[in-house]
Design a protein around this nucleic acid. Structure first.
Lengths: 226, 226, 226, 226
DNA sequence: TATGAATGAGTCTTCATTCAT
DNA sequence: GATGAATGAAGACTCATTCAT
């Protein structure tokens, strides 16, 4: 699992291997143009305010062409956010053969480091789509369900395994896992959102910030707890 | 400041005093009905997909009546989220006469406790409006600006004052305030969102959870912090 | 029943009394204009090829106005043909109190005479709508069912009563009623359609033609029927 | 003429001989498939609501292929109903060499019998196309003209010849031929439509029904006219 | 003040037809 | 010949907004 949570340049290579089906392979240039234009317009205007005519124009195709590839505007939305939601989940559901898990990370710090870097890279690469996803989840039951059932519960389950593992090793507090996970994930998401959404133009030294964040998560912000 | 960050029953009393102008005073019953209906429909459908006709129907007024009070649909939106955005900010911008701040909280823990309780109560009371606000901020420059300039920067500035205060007292780590604040706020928002949005139906013991959260923020999740 | 099958100038007065609800009373001038325009365009182009924009234009209203009165184009169609279908049926389902039936007509000829005149007048008055009705019945299950169940079977049932009555009186042949009715109705419809549809411009002496038709129905076309 | 009005198994043999040009000879399998699919879809949906894409799919050809054989959708329609309209007319326009007519039928009853059987068989074989034809005649002037000029007037003319013949023989009433023909044809069409369209699932004894129908046409429905 | 009928621009979607392959 | 991707005009329908009452 260390591999698919690594933050190498090919971070998402596993994803491509796993999810390539239906992705931008086997797609015509026009279809790719439609998808990219749709991502842009959905992100800028929001799904409901996005006009298929504008998407078509940005994609350089006739409006009717969109509907050859996607039966409805909603299909277009789902074909964008659906696979990304799966990719969001992917690194957590990779099968860990044998007891790979045990040897995966030497410490919770290492796990955190890989997790944060990996998801930061993922968010950077899929920024607009994630934006669309977050905006639209409340209004599309299918998305909402997929998110709650697949993402929230499965990610929780997987991280839970790690957390319990390190709890048993005595590395982290023996308190309920949900609270631990919520805290960890909140801090991570908070960093990523500030980094990419709130202050994208600030100069960031990611490595330092992540080290600091991990220190916060592990030891808090209280001074010298002696 | 202790007062306006307290979580008493009258938590928002200061808000009423400060922001009453334009609020539900001096409003006709019809206008109040319109606002309430609009909040419901905006929250359920999203601004763009909300029909003014549905709002009118739910409010029990004629379609045209809405436009007597609000020139456009967008005005209606802004009249809902604008004041709430101010209220979101309010507890942080209350003038602290003299050096009230110094004596406000005995410890950062106390400050955190008041902050979390207060904002949780606020979020609970204004749940739907906050939902609308978060949904619409990306699509309305006026909201976006108000949020970035008023909320983000001013809240940051105020919390920053507290943080520096406790940093000088040697209670918290001498690291850049932005990271400290981001971490604190992320953990707080993460709790509130889980509490109200992701798992509202779970049984929550808020007092215990908040205590645990503060312990996390202060001392992290590592076991045996000696 | 002799009354409502009479062919007086006020032939349809009973219908107005019975079916006035929802008819052109309580309608705004615009709604009436829409209905009339729709009848014209549906009859001329057929339902599927009729454009709501053309109906709006002919009615002198905005296109959106149509949809204030009729949720869909199909609703508009049904609101036109539905009531007419009921009126088509009406003269046959009037309650005949007591044994009114027995005394209604002195002979089958009298009955035929009233029937033909009455339905000819009705067809003349509702020519376009009947045209639309016939065109659209095959493609709208709701119309089809209404037609088969209400019209065909109920009209059959009512005429059947008359036929059996005169059969018992020894006026008409003792053969299965369905064949008798089919024959009578076919001859009647054939006359009406030739009269109004195939050769509307020919000069017609309706009274003579109807007398001849009744003679055919009663005694056939063979010469010297001794 | 007795031949082409007979109801033998090869009833339509004359048609094939006469109208084979442009019919299913010299046609590629694809073209035949297109025609058959078009008949099905036109009959089911109506011409205006039929999608060429659906026809192509049902025919197992590409959408573009249809337009290789038929320049427009309307051409496709006309190529279906046009020849059938001719066939509808055919048995009446066969040249009767010499005075064949005189010896054709011994009686008007015989003529009627052949006519009814023949057209019933024809209608059964061409049910869907006749359905399409009747539906579309009002909306296509070319069809309308062809129908009014070719069918109505020519069929009238031919039958008229028979009628006059039997009138002179003293077999049928000496009243205007149009009324006689209209009556005869109405009764015939009424039977065929009931038989095939209104109650196709009922058990029919065609021979008996036809005999009864002829009796009605010849002698009416009045009991014992002595 | 409040109404709600009326508007018409704008939306998504369909589909006959074309044309490069 | 045969394909099917691409087109774009046209269609049904929605909805924020206006205005006479």
């Amino acid at each position: 699992m260390a591999e698919h949570l690594s933050a190498d340049h090919n971070t998402e290579s596993w994803a491509l291997e796993l999810l390539a089906l239906g992705d931008e392979e086997k797609m015509t240039p026009k279809q790719i143009a439609i998808l990219q234009a749709a991502v842009d317009v959905f992100a800028e205007k929001g799904y409901a305010s996005a006009a298929t005519s504008e998407i078509a124009q940005k994609a350089g195709v006739a409006e009717g062409t969109i509907f050859r590839y996607y039966k409805t505007k909603k299909d277009l939305l789902l074909s964008i956010v659906g696979p990304t939601m799966s990719k969001l989940l992917a690194p957590f559901v990779i099968r860990n053969f044998g007891n790979l898990l045990d040897r995966s990370f030497d410490s919770y710090e290492d796990f955190l480091h890989a997790l944060i870097r990996n998801r930061l890279d993922f968010a950077r690469k899929n920024f607009k789509i994630l934006q669309i996803l977050i905006q639209e989840i409340p209004f599309h039951p299918s998305l909402r369900n997929q998110f709650m059932e697949d993402i929230v519960s499965k990610v929780f389950e997987r991280i839970s395994a790690h957390v319990e593992h390190f709890k048993q090793k005595g590395e982290i507090l023996d308190v309920p896992a949900p609270a631990l996970i919520r805290f960890t994930v909140s801090a991570t998401i908070g960093y990523i959102m500030t980094r990419l959404l709130l202050q994208p133009d600030r100069e960031w030294n990611d490595e330092e910030e992540i080290e600091l964040l991990i220190r916060f998560i592990m030891h808090g912000i209280a001074a010298d707890p002696k």
